[in-house]
Each structure stands twice: as structure tokens, then as C-alpha cells.
Simulated scan of single mutants.
Amino acid sequence: MIKFLRYTEYLYLAVAVISVYKIATLWSVNPKETYIFIFFAVVSIGMFLFRRKYRQRFEQRKKNKQQ
């Protein structure tokens, strides 16, 4: 299960990278379309950090139970 949590972290990070790329390419063409990608990038980075902290807590609890 810990591997699954680790993969979901990086999935959020990939969405953030793709969103930043779309922001960079669309900004000069139509800035209004980029607002949704800005939202996705911010939420994805936040979810990445949240999931990472959650996984670390989960690993720590598992480690403490084994001791």
C-alpha cells in the first residue's frame, strides 16, 4: 500500500508539471484559458505535499508498531 501512496504523490506532481507547461504555452495566446491550469497546478502541488506528509506519517506509524 505504501508503494501505491508513493505513486499517487508523483501523479499529482505530473499533473502540476503538465499544467505549468500548458500555462507557459497558452499565456501569450489567450491568458483567460490559463486560469484553470493555474488552479490545477496549485491544487496538484498542494495535494502532492499533503499526500507526501500523509504517507510519511503512515510509514512512521508502521515502523513504530513493528518495534
Results as ranks from 00 to 15, higher is better:
1 M>E: 06
2 I>L: 11
2 I>W: 07
2 I>V: 01
3 K>I: 04
3 K>G: 06
3 K>T: 06
4 F>H: 08
4 F>S: 07
5 L>T: 10
5 L>P: 12
5 L>K: 15
6 R>L: 15
6 R>A: 12
6 R>S: 15
6 R>E: 15
7 Y>A: 05
7 Y>F: 14
7 Y>C: 11
7 Y>H: 12
8 T>P: 01
8 T>E: 05
10 Y>K: 14
10 Y>C: 02
11 L>G: 14
11 L>Y: 14
11 L>C: 09
12 Y>T: 05
12 Y>G: 14
13 L>H: 03
13 L>Y: 11
14 A>P: 00
14 A>L: 02
14 A>N: 02
14 A>F: 00
15 V>Q: 14
16 A>T: 01
17 V>F: 05
17 V>L: 06
18 I>P: 03
18 I>R: 12
18 I>H: 06
19 S>Y: 05
19 S>I: 09
19 S>W: 06
19 S>V: 12
20 V>F: 09
20 V>M: 06
20 V>G: 04
21 Y>R: 03
21 Y>V: 14
21 Y>A: 15
23 I>D: 02
23 I>V: 00
23 I>L: 01
26 L>G: 03
27 W>M: 00
28 S>I: 02
28 S>K: 02
28 S>V: 00
29 V>M: 10
29 V>I: 10
29 V>H: 04
29 V>G: 02
30 N>K: 13
30 N>P: 03
31 P>M: 04
31 P>E: 06
31 P>N: 09
31 P>T: 00
31 P>A: 03
32 K>C: 04
32 K>I: 04
32 K>A: 09
32 K>E: 14
32 K>H: 11
33 E>G: 13
34 T>L: 12
34 T>F: 05
34 T>N: 14
34 T>K: 08
35 Y>V: 08
36 I>S: 13
36 I>H: 14
36 I>N: 13
37 F>Y: 15
39 F>E: 02
40 F>I: 04
40 F>S: 10
41 A>K: 11
42 V>W: 08
42 V>I: 05
43 V>W: 13
44 S>N: 02
44 S>R: 09
44 S>A: 10
44 S>M: 06
45 I>G: 02
47 M>N: 08
47 M>T: 09
47 M>C: 13
48 F>V: 10
49 L>I: 11
49 L>F: 05
49 L>M: 15
50 F>S: 13
51 R>Y: 13
52 R>Q: 12
52 R>F: 03
53 K>R: 05
53 K>D: 07
53 K>N: 08
54 Y>L: 13
55 R>K: 15
56 Q>F: 00
56 Q>L: 12
56 Q>M: 15
57 R>A: 06
57 R>L: 02
58 F>E: 12
59 E>M: 09
59 E>H: 07
59 E>V: 06
59 E>G: 00
60 Q>R: 12
60 Q>N: 04
60 Q>W: 01
60 Q>F: 02
61 R>F: 08
63 K>R: 03
63 K>N: 08
63 K>W: 01
64 N>R: 12
65 K>Y: 09
65 K>H: 13
66 Q>Y: 06
66 Q>F: 01
66 Q>A: 13
67 Q>T: 04
67 Q>I: 13
